[in-house]
Design a protein around this nucleic acid. Structure first.
Lengths: 193, 193, 193, 193
DNA sequence: TATGAATGAGTCTTCATTCAT
DNA sequence: AATGAATGAAGACTCATTCAT
């Protein structure tokens, strides 16, 4: 695959990302992608044989974008509390926001998984997020701003609760107050304030 | 619709429940249902005009089956701790269990909701579960077996975490140990033991 | 077929007439008739095996209702001119009126006729109307109020023109003025006024 | 849509014309067209989304074929009488002819029109024919070969009568003698002969 | 006779996928 | 490489007709 092809491929993936974010996973047709990226039907098939392949590519492109979430943020000037608050603010936005994010598509893709084969990449990413949060909590404990909790345990609980809110928001709807309430409760489990 | 019809309708709903539990929501076709309940195409349409109608009926039949989860359980002889453990054991089974459960179908149905109209019934049910758990926690606090936590806050956190595990289990897979770990952590937030 | 049956049959035919007048011929389904006459599906089939049979019965019931249109009207006190005007007024109402008349259904039924088999009953009726009008014209000539035209020829021309207006009204639409204009012209072919 | 497509589209329209001429409008299914033009189901849908669309295209293709019916015919050498006779001969052929003509389909299409919305194109065409005939009559009056009738009035009457014969022919059947008789009568209203 | 549930064939419509150019 | 016309297999839905009761 030459230089040109790589560019075109990226163009397709970008367009596909928009489509998946908009329509989820199962409702997306090859026609949707074709229309979104202004390429020919046959042309698209030269690169991707199905919406599944395309979605996997979109996911792969997504990887690494938010690894080491807190890497570099934790410095001398940034306190653990501040980083945590930043993280929560970001999460709140994602949980309440409906458009432009892939979470529904990801869920749907997983549901569609044949034979219950879970996506290992997804788990890897989730675990890596847990560990990152864990390190943040440890840092908070070290500098005395957080309670002396079991960092691993609390990190997992926070992540499950966030995931729970994400799905609740998309299925039954959550108000901003409800999200704020839970985030506050989670924060109070770590810091006095 | 006579006696006979009601029986047949129930027969269809039962068959549909199995199909939805097996294939989720979006992939289910009227043909799937037809084959599952050994009825003719036209015959099915006499009762339900779409998979959506059918799914709603399945959901309705599901309702009430687990309302007042802890009603009657909390008596003189059953301590709050025991009821909580029972609840957690049941949740664990649901979270890890893949077959015969509708949660994926429910999620998918919600995703498919036009214009992001959330299902109010779902929220009502979730809120009612939160309140039930809240009352259980209050009972535990009253009889001195639980810490003096903010019952409402903890109840919500537990429910979000459970929901989070449910979706994680179905998308990325969770091990029994992971579920046990989180449940233990949640329990430790309430009782010493 | 007993007394009761005849009553029921008439009830069905009456309901069917309304349906055909409302929806034409081809769009009418057995379900439409069933709903219109409040009888059971199977019950209807005891009397009529298809919408075609039903339509034929409706047509048959219609027969004789307007034979000898002008019979008895032409007396000593009623001049031919007056009867003609009455006839034209009635025709105008039919031509412009859209609802409650069977003409569209009749046309459709004839179009649907297999192999171009024309309906002889229809022709008989048309011819009988021509002759009736012819006799009216002759009467008018006799009493000196009409020009001395070829009664048969003029009668046919009037009938064709009326039929032409009927179909034009239902396909391309005719204004009241257009119908009035043509009727006036037809009348002027017979009387001075 | 390239060169090739236009050819195929025309091929479909031609096939559709035959089908409509044969079966009318309402009975025609997409399958009929598919079979008539030897194309695949999906292929047909690339060009036309419904029988209605197809029919409109067939009609459009038909337009203009007989506009200005008498244009150019009326010259120094062609007398109005001759043109009229030619016109009548053509009409007679159409009225008596059953196969290969769209009139029944057109009628049916109009009947099927939702809410009685009449087809304006049809009316325009009819009015234009009336005016053309009117000019012919005026020409005949001018050169002294026709009686001094009200050209507009007679033209409308002739057109209604022709339309009436057309529908009568297709519903109850007309003999050649009957058509000849009426045409002769119409002609005698204009010329002595 | 009368009922209305049940059947299955037929129509419409959409899409993933192929293929000649 | 690239195009987009073409294909055919599903899936949704309707309705004439039958049949057990």
């Amino acid at each position: 695959m030459g230089e040109r092809s790589a560019v075109k491929k990226q163009l397709i993936v970008d367009a596909a990302r928009r489509v998946f974010a908009d329509k989820g996973y199962k409702d997306v047709t090859m026609t949707d992608i074709v229309e979104a990226c202004g390429i020919s039907r046959g042309g698209l098939y030269l690169y991707f044989g199905s919406t599944r392949e395309l979605f996997l590519e979109v996911m792969r492109a997504e990887e690494g974008m938010d690894d080491d979430v807190f890497a570099g943020q934790l410095g001398e000037d940034a306190a653990a509390v501040d980083v945590l608050m930043l993280f929560f603010r970001e999460q709140k936005r994602e949980i309440l926001g409906k458009k432009g994010d892939l979470s529904m598509a990801v869920y749907e893709y997983c549901f569609a998984g044949e034979d219950g084969k879970e996506e290992p990449a997804l788990k890897r990413r989730f675990e890596s997020a847990i560990r990152a949060l864990e390190r943040l909590i440890e840092a908070g404990i070290d500098d005395g701003s957080f309670y002396e909790v079991d960092a691993r345990e609390v990190s997992r609980n926070v992540m499950y609760a966030l995931e729970g809110m994400r799905i609740c928001s998309r299925t039954m709807g959550l108000t901003e107050a409800e999200v704020d309430g839970e985030l506050l409760a989670l924060a109070r489990g770590l810091v006095a304030e």
